[in-house]
Simulated scan of single mutants.
Amino acid sequence: MDEEGKRQAASYREQLGYWNQTLEYLLENDEEFFKIYKKLVSSPYKNNILDAKSRELINVALSSAPTNLSKDTLEVHIENALDQGATEKEILEVFKLVSVLGMHTCAVGVPILVDETGKYEGAELNGRQEELKQKFIEKMGYWHEFRNTLLLNDEHFFESYYEFLTNPWENDVLSPKLKEFIYIAIDSATTHLFDVGIRVHIQSALRLGATFEEIMEVFKLTSAQGVDTFYAGIPILESVLAKRGK
């Protein structure tokens, strides 16, 4: 790497807190694009609207989301989060929040199933089911009709889902506002784009005192998810070229 390359690498490491072989490949093979890449991903790090630890925990959430599972970037952001003072317990809480994303299968699928079959249309909740519904609303502050179907179909499943969802809200390991930022990030991720959830969690974040500018920073962090293409693609490209003797 020439002196200009070393300067670019040092600047990147100073601003974002990490450097790796993927970035080195981009810098060496396409310096012009590397500068564009750096400009995109560094913006939320320059603004400091979100604190450094929160930024990295949001990035941990994005990399560990079941719609993404980018192991290379996950390792980078866990390292960064620890460097910024995050604890093992805080990172585990991020994983617990993110794992609930699997329930969006029901959020999207159940209404379609009801539309196609007519099952439970107009059905009333019984007393026990109504209690569970109110318990959910009191805890989470929102409700969608597909959960009525979950209750009517299988109280045990609904209750287990409720406990799984609310467990991270039973403690203050992460602030409520950061939890909502994490939900906004994983719902608005390129790999998910769950608009119902985005709106619900923006509303919740605003009620908790979040600002327009803070939520915009979450979107900027999330918009950089596309760079995971390079983390997945470049090692494979190098491996294939090596096999061909290039």
Rank of each mutant, 00 (worst) to 15 (best):
M1D: 09
Y12I: 03
R13F: 06
Y18C: 09
Q21K: 12
T22S: 08
E28C: 06
N29V: 08
D30L: 04
K35Q: 15
L40R: 03
S42W: 02
K46N: 14
N47V: 09
I49V: 15
D51F: 05
D51Q: 08
D51W: 04
S54Q: 13
R55E: 05
I58K: 07
L62P: 11
A65I: 09
P66I: 15
P66T: 11
P66H: 04
D72Y: 12
E75P: 00
I78P: 11
Q84D: 11
A86Q: 02
K89T: 12
E90R: 03
I91E: 03
L92I: 14
V94I: 08
V94Q: 03
K96D: 07
L97K: 00
V98T: 04
V108R: 07
L113I: 05
G118P: 03
K119Q: 07
E121K: 02
E121Y: 01
R128A: 08
E130T: 10
E130A: 12
K133R: 13
K133M: 04
F136N: 05
F136L: 06
F136V: 01
F136A: 02
F136K: 00
F146M: 11
R147A: 02
T149I: 14
N153W: 12
E155D: 15
F158R: 02
S160I: 13
Y161A: 10
Y162V: 06
N167L: 12
K177I: 14
F181D: 10
F181G: 08
F181N: 09
Y183N: 15
I184E: 07
I184G: 08
A185I: 11
I186K: 03
D187V: 04
D187W: 09
F194S: 05
V196D: 14
G197V: 12
H201K: 05
Q203P: 00
L206I: 14
L206F: 14
A210H: 06
T211V: 08
E217H: 04
F219E: 01
K220G: 01
L221A: 03
V240F: 11
A242C: 00
K246S: 07
